[in-house]
Simulated scan of single mutants.
Amino acid sequence: MQVTYNSDKRKLLSSLCHGAIFFSTALFSIGVPIVINLMSDDPVVKSNAKESINFHFNVWFWATLIGIPIGILSWITFGIGGLLFFPVIAFGFALHWGLTIWALLHCFSQPDVPFRYPFIFRLF
């Protein structure tokens, strides 16, 4: 017996998983894909939720790894270090938002295929 899944529900839940990263400054944003992963029985939605959780960890890891030294340098140099590294910070946000928008577009255009972020480490 083959099970079919609601395509609109799949699009919505997968998009919610990936779109939650836009609220990544609030730690509860990772709760959206975790709850969806636990509640859904759709394999594509579960895969998208796990990928979103991994992307959250990657964003937080790289923001910490890059942000702490830039913050210390900026504090030591009275803000000049922060200005010098503004392009690095801007690139990080552009990459973070660009990959998320790519994931959302993929979820809407190909709802039957789970999205995979390039160049991230996966814990789940």
Rank of each mutant, 00 (worst) to 15 (best):
I80Q: 04
I89R: 08
P118R: 06
V113F: 05
I34N: 12
L83T: 06
A63E: 14
F121I: 12
T77L: 11
E51T: 03
R116H: 13
W75S: 15
V3E: 06
P111Y: 02
I101V: 08
H56F: 00
W75P: 15
D112T: 03
S40M: 13
N54Q: 07
F28P: 05
F119G: 09
H56E: 01
G92T: 08
N48F: 00
W97K: 04
V32M: 00
C107R: 07
F91H: 04
N48M: 00
T25C: 15
I76M: 13
V35C: 06
I66V: 04
F124M: 10
L99Q: 14
N54Y: 10
F23P: 01
P69L: 14
C17P: 02
P114I: 01
T64C: 06
L104H: 05
D42T: 04
H56P: 00
M1V: 01
F93M: 15
T64G: 10
F23T: 00
K50N: 08
R10F: 00
G67W: 02
I53H: 15
F86Q: 14
D8Q: 11
V59N: 15
L104V: 08
V32L: 03
N48Y: 00
F22A: 12
G19R: 09
G31L: 03
C107P: 12
F61R: 06
L65S: 15
P87S: 15
S52C: 00
V3Q: 09
L16I: 07
M39H: 07
N48K: 06
G67R: 10
N48R: 04
V45M: 03
T64N: 06
F22T: 09
L105A: 06
N37R: 06
L99W: 10
Q110D: 13
I30W: 00
G82K: 11
L123N: 10
W75R: 14
V44L: 07
L38W: 11
Y117V: 01
F85A: 03
F55A: 01
Y117K: 10
I76W: 11
W62C: 10
V35E: 05
H106E: 03
G82F: 08
A103G: 15
A26F: 05
V59H: 13
C107T: 05
Y5I: 09
P114N: 06
I101P: 15
F115H: 07
G79I: 02
H96G: 04
F86W: 13
K11Q: 10
F78P: 14
L84R: 07
E51Q: 11
A49Q: 01
I21C: 08
H96E: 04
W60D: 12
P87T: 11
F121D: 15
L123E: 08
I30T: 00
K11C: 09
F55T: 02
T100P: 10
P114Y: 02
L13P: 00
S109V: 11
S109Y: 07
